[in-house]
């Protein structure tokens, strides 16, 4: 029941002109004008041009794509890129999971040191880190010095030619991109849940498999997608350490700036764009589920 109070001059429900109520945050859209203009002009349009150009060239249509698939050397590069990205993602996950687990339980000085050891390489230029790997992995580098010096092998390893050196360096460069999302997922796991599981009689292995692992899965998938996307588009490390093994990004650069074959470079870039966009959309969904929508290597 509605209590109606009538006093002088107050007529409930009296018809008066309905004026639009004030709405909070209504005018905020105009804030987006400048950022979106820049983004359209220098991101959306250039990418659209890349896609358009991939269908042009001497023979318009799908010619570039047919060329990529039918030419064994380019097809091989695409497949090898995929294989490397998969390998790097898997290896990174295996190495990162225990590290993230330890850091998520660490406190005080240990936590600071561990985090610094993850974040310093994260923020060091890839060029610089790749240079470090050259010093270590080259034919007369540190690793071969140690291995030959200790008599383990007779001939120095050619790590910079067969792709293995490139993979070692890529795994290293990608580690923080996996550790950070894992950490942010693991920080969110309530330690009481594990205690509850152990009170209920689960041994540590069962606790891990049935409680901890499922709860860390959003972090695992987010990290995997992020590492996979980045690995697909890797340029610096393959160019310096890949030797004869090349990846898509290097091929695009060669086609574009050395061979001036822009249609082919655009087609390769379009393939890369479609793949990474699809993965990025998956990543966005995962981050939305992980909560807060904090993408890209943000730990707090």
């Amino acid at each position: 029941m509605t209590q109606v109070v009538n006093e002088a001059g107050f007529v409930p429900g009296a018809a008066r002109a309905w004026r639009k109520p004030w709405r909070p945050g209504r005018g905020n859209g105009f804030l987006l004008i400048a950022p979106l203009t820049l983004l359209c002009a220098l991101f959306v349009v250039p990418l659209a041009l890349v896609v358009v150009r991939s269908f042009s060239g001497p023979q318009p249509g799908l010619a570039q794509y047919i060329e990529i698939v039918s030419n064994p050397s380019t097809a091989w590069v695409v497949l090898y890129t995929f294989w490397t990205a998969l390998l790097v993602t898997a290896a990174t996950l295996l190495l990162s999971y225990p590290v993230a687990f330890t850091i998520s339980r660490a406190k005080g000085r240990l936590l600071t040191v561990c985090l610094a050891m993850v974040l310093i390489p994260f923020w060091t230029s890839t060029v610089i880190r790749t240079y470090g790997w050259i010093v270590i992995l080259q034919r007369r580098g540190i690793l071969n010095d140690i291995l030959v010096g200790s008599g383990l092998i007779d001939q120095p390893l050619r790590l910079m030619n067969d792709g293995s050196g490139m993979q070692i360096a890529m795994i290293h460069i990608m580690l923080p991109f996996m550790i950070l999302p894992l950490l942010s997922a693991m920080r969110g796991i309530d330690a009481n849940l594990m205690r509850a599981a152990s009170v209920l009689g689960a041994n540590p292995l069962r606790q891990f498999v049935h409680v901890y692992l499922p709860m860390s899965l959003p972090g695992v998938s987010a990290g995997c997608v992020l590492v996979f996307i980045s690995s697909l588009g890797f340029y610096i490390t393959p160019a310096l350490l890949g030797g004869q093994r090349t990846m898509i990004a290097v091929l695009i650069e060669q086609q574009a700036s050395r061979l001036l074959n822009w249609p082919l470079a655009s087609a390769l870039a379009t393939i890369l764009l479609v793949l990474t966009s699809a993965l990025f959309i998956i990543y966005e969904r995962l981050m939305a589920r992980l909560g807060g929508g904090k993408p890209v290597g943000e730990v707090q």
């Binding site: 001059g9 008066r16 309905w18 004026r19 639009k20 109520p21 004030w22 709405r23 909070p24």
Partner: peptide, 16 residues
């Protein structure tokens, strides 16, 4: 923002 009605403070509608 209300979907209908008025709130009058000393006789003046403040909804808008």
């Amino acid at each position: 923002p209300p979907t209908a009605g008025a709130i009058r403070v000393n006789g003046t509608d403040v909804v808008s």
